[in-house]
Amino acid sequence: MISAEEQIAASRHLATKSGQGVQRFLIGLAVVLTAVMIVAPLAYIFRRAFADGVGPYWAAITTPDTLHAIWLTVIVTIVVVPVNVAFGIAVAWVVARFRFPGRGLLMTLVEIPFSISPIIAGICYLLLYGRRGILGPFLQEHNITILFALPGIILVTMFVTAPFVAREVLPLMLAKGSEQEEAAVTLGAKGWQVFRYVTLPGIRWALLYGAVLCSARAVGEFGGVSVVSGRTRGQTNTLPLQVEQLFNDLNTGVAAFAAASTLTVIAIIALFAKALLQARAPHN
């Protein structure tokens, strides 16, 4: 067996010997792949969106249906992100600060939405809240509408984006330990004071970072929402659904690409926000 040091030494040797060639090759590969797989398709969306100039682009974005889709997506995000921030903090707090049976299970459960395809989440909600679902008869009896309306869209989006905040906050809380909080308690701080002045400042960057990721995912969610939305244009079509629908129409011209470009812009903004947060976060 070769020891770790020997390995490192060997790789260093390799690096200095053929170093520059390999390095250039890898950099080139990364640049080409990024260009081909990410930059080119995104650039193409904008090219098609502006194919007929700015006027038709603007007209496509501001049709009532597309505007409504943008508006609906914003509403869903505004509701989902705060709920998931609260949920994320609660879960991270419980798991980081307490030992109890089922703690490991809870940590696993929180991550489940990541490993389940969103469309499965949508189908689960359909089987639960649908007319023929388990809760269907009860909901009908009390005239409660969940599916094919705003509540269903929000619920599914919440499910799909549930892990983001908890996942960012939890490792930080575990790493920080509870000494500072215990100190605060011995100094006479009440529960919410501990949270407000000790816990929160420690996790705020991770929290914001998680919230940004959560927002980006909520805006782009397609699979789960497509099952429970009902796709009524001007009512329950979110922006990703609107993009798909416009794309599936024949003769749409720039409309589908214009709507897609809006989604792309939102994603890019989220990306910059994320980069900014990463740069400012003290632990990075």
Partner: peptide, 20 residues
């Protein structure tokens, strides 16, 4: 008149599950 459009079979399924 509100409109909902998707694959015909998927739409039938949605109506069956409560799309009004």
């Amino acid at each position: 008149i509100d409109q909902s459009h998707a694959g015909s079979s998927a739409q039938a399924r949605a109506v069956l599950e409560g799309l009004p």
